[in-house]
Design a binder for these strands. Structure first.
Lengths: 341, 341
DNA sequence: ATTATATACGGAAACGATTGCACGTGTTAT
DNA sequence: ATAACACGTGCAATCGTTTCCGTATATAAT
């Protein structure tokens, strides 16, 4: 209803066959310059727009990438998607964006829907609830181009983009220790998550190096309900075994921590020092006190994912996506939440 | 390459014709229950997935909605998209999401790309730079289903969803006046924006009602560069004609204001009171001091846009989208940035 | 003059699903 | 026994492109 002329009508107008017109528009060598010019100008005049579905059907590709993220309201994921779009747009690709809301079942539904070829590839970061990855292995085994970022599946042999999670966890913890912390809590979304594991390992090794022993009660696994998280952290802060430092492995838990601290009489950083993986720099410096952050190169990660895929999808006869983990380092920015003046 | 069996192969496996299988899967009355059962179970067994492009080509619809927003890193727009997805997903629709980055040229490119029928409808909020709307009128005149939200185009006769911008601007300003403000600045992204106009009108009327006269120097039009905005606001705050209250018409300018205030020796709310349209409640209450906000029903706006479109697209013979503005009220939450204890 | 070759174009099949129409059964009514 | 009628199924066209072939003309080579 909304589309204008099609190829056949355009051809009729030009008194040429559809095949000639198609070739002319696709700049085929078989067509003379004169006809090409005529065809192109008439196409512009009639505002001819090729039907994307006819083309997709014929070419068996959609010029569409699916992006699957755990949540939209996150500066990290927003920036990653911006980075992806920046690249894909230049190649004329479109972006289907899905949020799993940290729910495996939704993730499975989305992935299964995408099996039908609606998208040429998937860029994703798994939900915190994802432990069964059969839906993803199936996808990959069918040869579907799949790239992970941030929250990856190690078991699936494809390319993954992450930040230096281990080192960042290590350095962040070390920084807290250097500032005098002896009891450091670790906040996470789920033990299953790749980022949790790596960041936690860095945290453990930093403790070890400083001769500190990890205490299981200081690890908190959070959920999707902000209020519950705040209360859990508050319990931790008001309990007998109160930590003097907190390493939050994701952005939203840093905010929950600030909320929790507000409900106590504790002071940051005097009584409790806070450091978090965090992507929203503007907010980090506005928090009171400003938050020491480990900033992931979100936009850049998105760009790299997209560049890799564009190379694979637009060049003929590309090899499969190699099974490797590409690391783009984060940056630690020390602010007031960890420094006592 | 990635798709499994197609209809013909499925039919061959069942020793039936493709048409029968198609009808069976679409639950046609012409097919016996027995065959339907057989077909469905075989389809499941072979994991048959209909090719979406073949279907789109034939049916001339894509089961896809395009969402065009000015930026991704905004809690307001993130929540709206979440609301849209919540509804469209139930109908099996997919979401193409585009960000214009507040750039009209990108907006035009995106809209023109969408003219070819890749999406069945567009839900959009225009960029702050959009004054020439020819790309949108053309789209609408072709009968393309188009719905606006938040930043709308009044001149295009279709359905628009907004919040009570005028009243919110009025009430917000009134609140500032009640708290003793006499010189209230108004921060905006662009004078062209529908939300700016309405909120500003509310602001003006509230001033008038209080017998205050508007001062042009207190209106600041901001840009895309956060640093520039911060400096501009700082100039305002340190100038001779310093305001004692600020009404920010968008979220990001409230953050810029907090940054600007940090660069002065002014205190909030004693020296300057701040109130803003703002969607991220968690952040609003963490700011120091906590921010008095006008909260738009973002998720709800998204849901309503989607519901309307789903009705139009999934029911046969629906009328055009009526030319009306539907208002969903915001809520004002008073916090510390406007209250001197 | 005849054959080879390049050039420029048209015809038609193909992609995979949906659907109007036709057709062959079996049942019932006359 | 034959006509009428469901009922279930198959054939073929269709959606709009792209592309494999085929072919007509013109030019060059033999």
């Amino acid at each position: 209803m909304s589309t204008g002329v099609n190829l056949k009508e355009l051809a009729a107008e030009l008194k040429l066959s559809p095949s000639t017109v198609s070739r002319a528009l696709n700049d085929s060598y078989e067509i003379s310059e004169a006809t090409k010019k005529k065809v192109i100008s008439m196409a512009e005049k009639l505002n001819y727009q090729p039907n994307p579905f006819a083309r997709s059907l014929r070419e068996n590709k959609s010029k569409t990438i699916a992006v699957v993220i755990p949540e939209r309201m996150s500066s990290f994921f927003s920036k990653v998607v911006d980075g992806i779009e920046e690249v894909t747009q230049q190649y004329g690709y479109h972006l289907l964006v899905y949020s799993t809301h940290e729910d495996v079942d939704r993730e499975k539904k989305i992935v299964n829907l995408l099996m039908n070829g609606r998208a040429d590839a998937i860029i994703m970061s798994v939900s915190s609830q994802t432990s069964d990855i059969s839906h993803l292995t199936r996808l990959h085994e069918r040869g579907f181009p799949l790239v992970f970022f941030d929250r990856i599946c190690s078991d699936i042999p494809t390319t993954k983009f992450i930040t230096n999670d281990y080192e960042s966890g290590f350095e962040g913890t070390k920084h807290l220790i250097q500032q005098g912390c002896r009891k450091i809590a670790f906040l996470m979304l789920s033990k299953e998550l790749s980022i949790t594991k790596d960041r936690y390992k860095g945290y453990l090794d930093a403790l070890k190096q400083a001769g500190l022993s990890p205490e299981p009660q200081l690890n908190i696994t959070c959920c999707q309900e902000e209020e519950q998280n705040i209360e859990a952290i508050k319990q931790l802060l008001t309990g007998a075994n109160r930590p003097d430092g907190i390493l939050s492995s994701v952005e939203k838990l840093a905010l929950a921590t600030y909320h929790a601290v507000k409900r106590t009489h504790l002071r940051i950083p005097e009584d409790i020092k806070i450091l978090s993986f965090f992507s929203n720099l503007s907010i980090a410096s506005l928090l009171n006190p400003s938050l020491t952050t480990i900033t992931q190169p979100a936009f850049n990660i998105g760009e790299e994912c997209a560049k890799l895929l564009m190379k694979k999808l637009t060049k003929p006869r590309q090899p499969d996506l190699p099974n490797q983990v590409i690391t783009i380092p984060s940056q630690i920015t020390i602010r007031s939440s960890t420094i006592v003046l």
